Computed example of a mutant assay.
Amino acid sequence: MNAEERACSGDSCVTCSDEAVQVRVLRLLDDEFAAVATETGEEVVSIALVPAGPGDVVLVHAGESIAIVEG
């Protein structure tokens, strides 16, 4: 596989083909977790990689927040 084939493209993960989703942080929980609002209801995700807080919109992939999209 060359570098172009490994590069991220589109809206899905090159490793597993899953899409990342945008969710809004509702409240912070213990141990670097947060409750977030999704299309299907409230879920818990990790915020260990980003300094997110209540009201922030984060990009989540495989239960891990990977970027703050809007604060």
Rank of each mutant, 00 (worst) to 15 (best):
V60A: 02
E32H: 01
V45T: 09
I68L: 03
L26T: 02
E42I: 10
C8H: 03
D18V: 05
V44F: 13
A62Q: 05
C13I: 11
S46G: 10
A35S: 14
P54S: 07
T40A: 07
A37F: 13
M1Q: 04
R24A: 15
M1K: 07
R6V: 10
A34P: 02
A3E: 06
V14R: 00
A62S: 04
E19N: 06
T38M: 07
D30C: 01
S9M: 03
A3P: 01
S46C: 05
V36Q: 06
E4A: 08
V14F: 00
H61W: 02
Q22R: 10
G41K: 01
L49W: 12
V23E: 04
V50F: 03
V69W: 11
R6Q: 13
A3W: 06
L28Q: 08
S9Y: 11
D11P: 13
E19R: 09
V60F: 15
R27I: 00
D11F: 08
F33G: 03
C16D: 14
S65G: 14
A35C: 06
G41H: 03
N2P: 12
V57L: 15
Q22T: 12
V23Q: 06
V45Y: 15
E39Q: 13
A37W: 11
A52M: 01
V14M: 00
T40C: 09
V14N: 00
D11W: 02
L26N: 06
D11T: 09
L59M: 07
G53A: 12
D18S: 08
A52Q: 08
E39F: 07
L28N: 14
I68F: 04
Q22P: 10
V44L: 08
D11H: 11
C13D: 02
A62R: 12
E5V: 04
E5T: 13
S9C: 13
F33Q: 14
G55W: 07
D56L: 05
D18P: 04
M1S: 08
I47H: 11
L26S: 06
V36K: 15
V58C: 11
A52S: 09
E42M: 13
D56R: 07
V23F: 15
V58Q: 09
